[in-house]
Design a protein around this nucleic acid. Structure first.
Lengths: 228, 228, 228, 228
DNA sequence: TGCTAAGCGAGACGGTACGTCCCGTCTTAAT
DNA sequence: ATTAAGACGGGACGTACCGTCTCGCTTAGCA
């Protein structure tokens, strides 16, 4: 998934890159990111810890931001979209999908990295594609299933609903008192679904029915039953 | 609003600080922020443009982040909470209140500045208080009026609703396709109010009634009527 | 005259070396030497100008110094020892023989190149043989003729006299106010011959006689008559 | 005698330079010069050994060459001009005066350093003044005494005689078989004085008389009597 | 009013990190 | 088998900037 500054395999000839350096540099980058954040990330220090030199890093990545992004990309969970058949539960679970990135990478690292991407459209695109989009796509699939089931009003803007759900997670992670708790997530989904659902009480009933059915099952998927 | 690093009036005697330097530095800071963003903000360059020296800056602010925050604080609009009596309209307008900061300061400047605040709790608090809270308080007052009017369900979490509204603006400003348009704002508020209102159709009716009443008035406050 | 690092004909089979590269590299080397001196001579730049690659250079010469020496060798004049039958004139002319190298190569190039040869005895020997010895041998032959004619005292050390004459040229070229002028050369030879000759006045008389004899001849060899 | 890149005491204000760094850098420079010669002198290595940083060096000296020159200047002997009353002996001793620099600094270091000075007239002047001139001035005084005593022909060019003597030393040190031996020095001076003296036999006689007089004296100054 | 000392301004310092040039070597494909 | 050329890993460069220290000057409060 790493995007080298200059393609390592582009030229036919030439000495091949030492793949151990790739790994060592990415590891060292994550190490430094964890200790000092993106602001304190210096290629000098990364090179030192990776046991290599700065030019070897520049040969692989165009600078600090692309390096950090590549390092982060190696650790980002691939989010799995929830699908229990229960729209209420699936959407409540969606908050966790959006939270995935923040469980492995500290929020301020992501936000300062993103800030540096602002001036470079290409880098910005890569950031969005790497960090934001996977979660968004996963939740999008969940949402599509709800729409297929006819659970949502037909005039609901799919993208907007995704934005609302996703943004709440980001906001709380970046600026909020703390990460969104399960209770808060359920409460927020309740409000949103009351507004977005064709028949909210029916969704609640369906959720409770599934809950009943799976009672006692190990690792039951309905860990977040919501009462009206 | 500036918070000097060390109190200028701490010592009884001594040469007084040159107030022109304060202004020149803050202006230069905004200038550089506008050109290079927070990442490219160097105190060296600020001092150069302000016609002073780096120690003079350090005497007033503890570093790059506090300086940038102080400079930004001089330009932030004080948001005015909308109050038309129409809950629907007021809340739709609230998105604009949250957007206030981003109209004067580029989003990436704010986000990278915030990222640097992450490691310093005190600075982080000042950032939130300066940049985030004013808008939040303004919208909060609007929300309180809606609650007082009995327009919202009593089990609605006021803070959470504020978060949802505010977060959407931040998310779109930072990561989104573009800033929230009026149409999108109205659509989002519709979804939220359908879920949060005691009687959504009544709110719509009320809004339309007010709209009728003010028809033809110049600069009418109901510029965003919403149909069911 | 070039001395390849590794023999080009060492292996029986294999792709033959491109002789155009030899020429292009030597030319480029002289070009760069002329612009930046030996200190600024970079193989990278030479390869760039020669339209080839660094390994192709390393294959032919062992490094910077041997390359520079080879390039210089292609341009060094082969000095012609003066022989007019007039010891006074021949020796005065000898200064010009020693100056030959400095007319084509800038003194500082030669001296810095030599400095780098210091650590490598083999290279040093090649430098001396290439740059210093030809002139020395040429003047040596002139000196031998003077000795054969019985013009010099028998206890004169031939090598030492060569050293004295040659060193004066080198010294003036490297450290002096300017290159030795003809007048200075004549004056120096006068002093030296007064000390070295069996009968200095006789030499002067002989010189004047030859001068008289060739008067009016075009391109006369006695261009530097010396009066007592 | 060191000439800082930018005067340390030029500005009234400002933090004063740490003089220990000056010493440490000069020492480290001599150390590296001794090990690798001027060509291998890297400021990085000097900084490392001196326990400081490259900028601290650049603040004091304009680059590699000025630094090396300053370091060398701290070790150059101040030559003492011989004065025994015996022109023959004094001049023979003069070769040792010229050799002084090469006894403390390896010839190739001096010559490569000088080569780098070639492109910078100011630096070149400093080199000549520091390395060459002191010896030249010392021998010049000796020569002046000989002239005052009326030992030399009046039409002898003082500067040229200095050049001849000095150049022989430099030449032998840089390009020669080995440093000039005492016997060679005496022999060279004999040749030169035969040509330059008003009455060479008288000088020899005087030398022998002095020799007789001081016979048996410990550390007698006439260690190099020369027979006709 | 004159004295004292605290604080200010600016300059320069010691040092970290930057992004780049170049070196000398290794690798592949072609001859 | 050996070449030509591209690319690699790494050493060193000269510079921008950081955060601090030092100086001389300014000014307020006390004698």
């Amino acid at each position: 998934m790493s995007k080298p500054h200059r393609s390592a395999t582009g030229g036919v000839g030439g000495r091949p890159r030492d793949p151990q350096i790739d790994d060592a540099v990415l590891s060292a980058t994550l190490e430094v990111l964890g200790e000092t954040g993106y602001t304190g990330l210096s290629l000098e220090e990364v090179a030192r810890r990776a046991g290599t030199s700065r030019p070897a890093i520049y040969r692989r990545w165009a600078g600090r931001a692309p390096l950090a992004l590549a390092a982060i990309a190696t650790r980002l969970d691939v989010p799995s979209p929830p699908d229990t058949g229960c729209t209420l539960c699936d959407l409540a679970e969606s908050f966790n999908v959006f939270l995935a990135a923040y469980r492995t990478i500290r929020p301020e690292v992501l936000s300062s990295l993103y800030a540096e991407c602002a001036s470079d459209p290409q880098l910005r695109a890569r950031y969005l594609e790497t960090v934001i989009e996977p979660s968004r796509r996963a939740v999008g699939r969940t949402l599509d299933r709800a729409i297929l089931r006819g659970d949502l009003r037909t005039d609901i803007d799919r993208e907007q609903l995704l934005d609302i759900v996703g943004s709440l997670v980001h906001y709380r992670a970046l600026f909020g008192r703390q990460h969104l708790t399960d209770a808060e997530a359920e409460s927020a989904i309740e409000t949103l679904l009351r507004g977005a659902a064709v028949d909210y009480p029916a969704l609640v009933a369906h959720s409770e029915a599934l809950e009943q059915e799976h009672r006692g099952a190990s690792g039951g998927r309905h860990t977040h039953p919501i009462a009206t």
